[in-house]
Nucleic acid binder design. Sequence first.
DNA 1: CGCCCTTTTGAAGAAAATCAAGGGCAGTGG
DNA 2: CCACTGCCCTTGATTTTCTTCAAAAGGGCG
Lengths: 244, 244
Amino acid sequence: MSAKSFVERLSRLADLDEIDIDLAQSIPWSSVTVARGRDILSLSDRPSYVYVIESGWAARHSVRKDGSRRITGFMLPGDFCGIHAVTGEAMEHAIFALTKCEVTRVQANIIEEAIAVSPAIGRALWRAKLTDEAILRRWLLNSHDAETDLAHLICELHARADAIGAADDNRFLMPVTQEQLGDALGLTSVHVNRMMKKLRLSGLVQFEGHEILIPDIDALRASCDFSPAYLHLPERGLRPALAA
Amino acid sequence: MSAKSFVERLSRLADLDEIDIDLAQSIPWSSVTVARGRDILSLSDRPSYVYVIESGWAARHSVRKDGSRRITGFMLPGDFCGIHAVTGEAMEHAIFALTKCEVTRVQANIIEEAIAVSPAIGRALWRAKLTDEAILRRWLLNSHDAETDLAHLICELHARADAIGAADDNRFLMPVTQEQLGDALGLTSVHVNRMMKKLRLSGLVQFEGHEILIPDIDALRASCDFSPAYLHLPERGLRPALAA
DNA sequence: CGCCCTTTTGAAGAAAATCAAGGGCAGTGG
DNA sequence: CCACTGCCCTTGATTTTCTTCAAAAGGGCG
């Protein structure tokens, strides 16, 4: 573990000059391990740290009065969470570990100082937030057809996994149960299961357990009108080893 | 028209000291009027301005391949749009005027310089973005029951109108057609109409045209589990005259 | 081995979409 | 001034989609 992922991620989000990088590298950090199923940040927490997922997958989720859940976003290695800590807001949802997660954390007030000194670091975090927002809008845009929505979510997660080198081109590990997919899509796990079957029968997606195989990524993307631009992913090529 | 609304809005989002306020007030601005139904910002635009709605209502929306629309947010007087201009990103959705809108605009690069000099201004914009994000997550959280979702949207818009003094306690003007409500909720206009009728019959909401009357706001809020905290509204009391 | 979690499938029911048609109201033009 | 037109609201009947309820099978792990 290192704070490498923190600086790496920042520098992929905005152009940092040497001064920015030196500053970012000088920021003290610590590391935490969170077991599968446990919260990284809980509802109503006022986090005093900003976190970066080092390894593992996590998700944001809220629980309704009737006990049903809604997942409002997934987090993969390299993703920030708790950035809004810099304003001292309380968490309006929880972030929990889908798998065992290793998490690097940095004190929020130190981040805030760094932003004041280095606007480029502020821009990097701003860009991360814009990506979160774009994903949320995309999720809203989708919610209209179960099969398409599921295909789109698989495309999103594949593209994000691929961008951090956690996908073997057409194959990747998606550690999300069908019930969790349902919570993310606003569907029941039963219906997710049927839609997965449809995707399998149509030949667009194959899977064994959580190992997803996409025989023809272009066909899958076309089927759900997926285009990765909104994810603001870095150009492929560098692919640092951040995989789960 | 003035840039007053710009500075006012900033100062309600974060604690600005005199220096910040002087700086904000020195920022040059201009004003534009946009007719009902026209775009304030179009898809793929790379806006070079940050906008504040001076009067009127607007909405963000995307169009799907099949021609159906999804509204992903409403904008009321005092709201920013195009803040993400500061990173030079292209618009991934359009913003259009629900009513005739007067809009104040400020050059994005000047905003960016202001942020570099005054971290408080940056925090204010950051906070505005966090509110946008919280609303998006809430919309995702809702989408599960048409009547409840509609009630929740009315509560959101009422609370936001009230916060800018555009509501007369239990009465406000919601210039949104039922079809647009459907686009916002992911429902057909037919179904929105039926749900409006249900709300009317249950006595929770009355309306004449777009004039909404809420006989018992607590009852309506309880019916859809609405709590305004996530909107980060300013404390009531000041109520500057920004209404549409 | 037995338990729990997850996946899978079936059947019945509820929610929302679709299709269709009529009515009100405001703006426009003859 | 009135008729026409377009937009929005309203309602009914039918169909589709998704949920709910129920049950069984697979797989990993203590």
